[in-house]
Design a protein around this nucleic acid. Structure first.
Lengths: 196, 196, 196, 196
DNA sequence: AATGAATGAGGGTTCATTCAT
DNA sequence: GATGAATGAACCCTCATTCAT
């Protein structure tokens, strides 16, 4: 890639980052092209030189976001720490980007892209499912996960907890409950006392 | 309340219902005053006669929605069914209004709610916390809930599951997992097998 | 029609007239909604309250124009004057509206509306063809038109001459040639000399 | 002209051709500099290196077009065919370039032409008037044209017919009427019957 | 009290043109 | 001389809100 190309890519990245940060904070509909332009220090038209229209821009922001988020996730899954520590990290550690997701952004991501046959669906299935599968396999092997429970249900649980906990309006309220929530995740609301 | 008053209240209710139904389906930003007016069979100005501006209208819609949702919840909590059945109902039965909440609506609700010191938080705390407390107490008394786990954590768990499951993009995918998810909720990911 | 309706119709007419006059002078594409609004002394949005979008506005302007132009034409055809005088009037007298048609306007009219099955095509066929037929019949009966020549060809000739002569860039140049052109129309380029 | 000059001229011609073909198809206002650049395989800025601005470009395209069209016309006028055949060819044969002129292009051409004192009018007067004069002279000498009718009127008639017939929306409808129209052109609407 | 009419502000988008390399 | 990148101005259109009746 020559200098021209590199500078072009850099500017495109600037716009993507500006857009993402605004989307995450205010949602998508509330953010105007003009605001993104201002934040990225370019003119509105420059944005249109890089992205066909707002929809395309949103799309590429999504992809950029997903890629980064998956990277975060992968690091945790392959880290050299115990299974419960991985779970805690996934649930309670905010990734660099994944923190402060504006709900509308999240919703857009999900709604627009559960439509099958697009890059986001594709990359998500291709990359996260295997990571989850590995993680759960590890959990089952080490006796942390009931082998009779389907992987799907476990995945659903982890994803739900992760997303919910990391919501802006939830995170702070949940931190004091970290231990209890982890306990419920592993032992259920009945707890271990019923064993004896 | 005289006839005038009653008719006035009825019209206000019409507007609220129209607005709510549109908000739930399309989100808040996408719904214009003009559309609400059309659906409620009144002029736009009439809406302004009853509500100061769009923000006020949204707020009152929220309150109306919360009231209705809490009623649904109360019915379930005080119903004459077993504790696990109550939990399943809460988690998987869509309430009459609470089904198909457009995410943006939900997010708006939460944002308003988290801003402390407003009616929505007030009413929520006043009315749902006691219901949750009763429910959890019942669960603990009947041995379904570990007495060592804090009520807050249990509440968090129930709310999270309820909200997440009833999301439009989640509900259908989760239905086949009903049993597994309920199992995890009660016994955790470790399951009962570890007891023996 | 009550007062409200009447005022509404009047304002709509104001907008139509403003738009028409601008379209005729500058063409359609060059005229912005904002300019029409200024000329009609209303805000841009008011125009949108009366017409769905620019396309619809153009459409209604066309219809308004056609209606008026056909009225002009009908008056001439049914007037109490001789056949040659009718022809001269049609060819050289500018109707109140039909003068100074900007070519782009005319082209739009024709291109957009030779698409069959719309109001303009419909009204045109329904109203002008009979008028033309009457006119030509009169000409044939009075010996001014060769009965062996098809009505279509005569119609084509009259329309062509009328449209061409009344073009802005042509009219003034053609006026001094009125007699010659009329002569050619009746006797052809060979003239009467061939008779002897 | 050295190699540099020649290549420069070639590139300029490429741009002119690209612009002309787009103008003829879509009209002038609808065609953007960017589209012309794409079609001519040059950058937008290159166009500005050759032509001051869009207006200048349009003007030079006009001149290029006029030149070509006049060449076509000259070929017909000096061809070795009879006078009536020349007339028919002029009226009904579409020249290579002159066919399918987008009306807006034509109108622009005329507007520019009528604005006195510009190259387009100059070239037109200088080159076509003599050709027309020759043609009409030939017609008069051979008895096809009434010598008492002014050349101006004849010219007007021919130009009108040519332009009108070759309009996109007219041409196909007129073809079946070729004989009748030619007849009217030569003998007028009264036809030959008046001779007897 | 209720409404039809009207609007200022702003949004996405396009285009002719200029800047910088 | 040629180009990719950048932009100010303008356009069509929508919306929450106010005016006038």
């Amino acid at each position: 890639m020559d200098g021209f190309q590199r500078r072009r890519e850099q500017k495109k990245l600037d716009i993507l980052k500006a857009a993402l940060s605004l989307f995450l904070e205010y949602g998508i509909q509330k953010v105007s092209i003009s605001e993104i332009a201002k934040k990225a220090n370019v003119s509105q038209v420059t944005i249109y030189n890089y992205f066909e229209n707002k929809h395309t821009l949103i799309n590429e922001v999504m992809i950029y976001f997903i890629d980064t988020a998956i990277n975060d996730f992968q690091k945790t899954v392959t880290a050299n720490i115990s299974f419960p520590e991985k779970i805690k990290t996934i649930l309670f550690n905010k990734g660099e980007i994944a923190n402060q997701i504006h709900e509308e952004f999240y919703q857009y991501l999900m709604n627009e892209y559960t439509t099958e046959g697009n890059y986001i669906e594709e990359i998500y299935v291709k990359k996260t499912i295997p990571l989850f599968t590995d993680l759960i396999k590890e959990g089952k092997e080490q006796g942390y996960v009931d082998p009779n429970t389907s992987d799907e249900a476990i995945m659903f649980y982890i994803k739900m907890l992760k997303e919910y906990i990391q919501r802006d309006d939830v995170y702070s309220k949940v931190l004091p409950l970290t231990e209890d929530i982890t306990k419920i995740f592993f032992y259920g609301i009945m707890g271990q006392n019923i064993k004896e």
